[in-house]
Write a protein that binds this DNA or RNA. Sequence first.
DNA 1: AATTTAAGTTTTATAATAAGACTATACTGA
DNA 2: TCAGTATAGTCTTATTATAAAACTTAAATT
Lengths: 151, 151
Amino acid sequence: MKLKSFEHFNCSLAQTLSVIGEHWNMLIIRDAFFGLRRFDQFQKNLGIARNVLSDRLKKLVKAGVLAKSDGPGHAEYRLTQKGLALQPIMIAMTHWGDTYMPHPEGKRLTFIDRANGKPIKTVGVYSADGKLLKPKEIMTKTGPGLRDEQA
Amino acid sequence: MKLKSFEHFNCSLAQTLSVIGEHWNMLIIRDAFFGLRRFDQFQKNLGIARNVLSDRLKKLVKAGVLAKSDGPGHAEYRLTQKGLALQPIMIAMTHWGDTYMPHPEGKRLTFIDRANGKPIKTVGVYSADGKLLKPKEIMTKTGPGLRDEQA
DNA sequence: AATTTAAGTTTTATAATAAGACTATACTGA
DNA sequence: TCAGTATAGTCTTATTATAAAACTTAAATT
């Protein structure tokens, strides 16, 4: 049957998944972070079927993550502000894969602070005063946008 | 045709997606963070079809994200260390959804430091000395685990 | 022994995906 | 100008994945 969409959950995580949760989307977004902008660049780099890429780019534009513009003789897709804001997610996911599903020869990619060439801090959960928190040191509080539906 | 799996990409992000990228997986993991442990708890809370839940729990156990144990008269699924390490991703995704696809009445969930009741810092990318970095202030360096395949 | 609870599996109809062929449009060089 | 090429798609077909509900199995309860 139809793949259940998460859009109608009143849940911030499900909302996010409705945009980036589809197969390929996060890899397309990563490629956009690495500077790819054109249909065929994405297609060749990922090996994605053209119709699927076409559909995903359309959806990502509609969701406001990418913006389409006309370059000289070709279309261009660039990350919007909303798309750029996905960077912590992208980096956290890359870091988790590097740590828990490592390549035998070592790290694949390191993210660097352009200003000083030093690696960035591990993406993690930090307390207001900057201490790295462990999973069980964190709890949740419900806000006005949530009644007794799902979190 | 067969859904292309990302397992064989030499890419940390694709590796992560091969574990958490499937439909429902991240919501199952979130529910596990919120303390759910049993088949029917997940099933009822998410409204997921039973066969799909069965398959996903099996895969998450196989991937080492959840561990299955026998409780009194029922099975239990708990996050492993590897699963707990997904928390920054989960929180970053929740935060993005809250910011860019907000509920009209306000925040749905806030994450709190258990020690002092204060909200955690925004999950983001920080420099070695603790400054919040903008997307374009970050670059990447390839490591030994990466030849000239994809990032 | 019969009922209930829990955790799945099976079945069936529908929807999504991959692969490659095909199309439309604009640019390029002779 | 006109053939050729690059780019960005769309269309077709076969296959695979999903959802929903009914069914099964096993243990605990009454």
